[in-house]
């Protein structure tokens, strides 16, 4: 099933399938948000936004609206 990082729950993981949306800045890609890389949702701020992620070994936080643009395949535990 195709979903985005915004659909992850705390502790869940996924593999990025697509991050080519024009609204995703280059900086985010350079930080590792590229197809094939693994992403884990580590923490959520109050109101579930922003989201604190581990992407490809990098720890970063992005807003939910950006997270919704990065498509993933969820990894079922």
């Amino acid at each position: 099933m195709s979903c985005s990082i915004a659909d992850l729950k705390k502790g869940e993981r996924g593999i990025i399938t697509d991050s080519s949306s024009d609204s995703i800045p280059l900086k985010l890609l350079e930080m590792g948000c590229l197809p094939g890389n693994e992403v884990t949702l580590l923490q959520l701020a109050p109101f579930a936004d922003p989201m604190y992620l581990n992407v490809n070994g990098s720890h970063l936080a992005i807003r939910k609206e950006t997270a919704a643009l990065i498509l993933i395949d969820k990894i079922d535990e």
């Binding site: 609204s23 800045p25 930080m31 922003p50 604190y52 990098s58 720890h59 970063l60 807003r63 950006t66």
Partner: peptide, 11 residues
């Protein structure tokens, strides 16, 4: 303007 935000969470 586009709303965009990314911050590294250092150790």
């Amino acid at each position: 303007s586009k709303s965009f935000f990314v911050i590294e969470m250092p150790s």
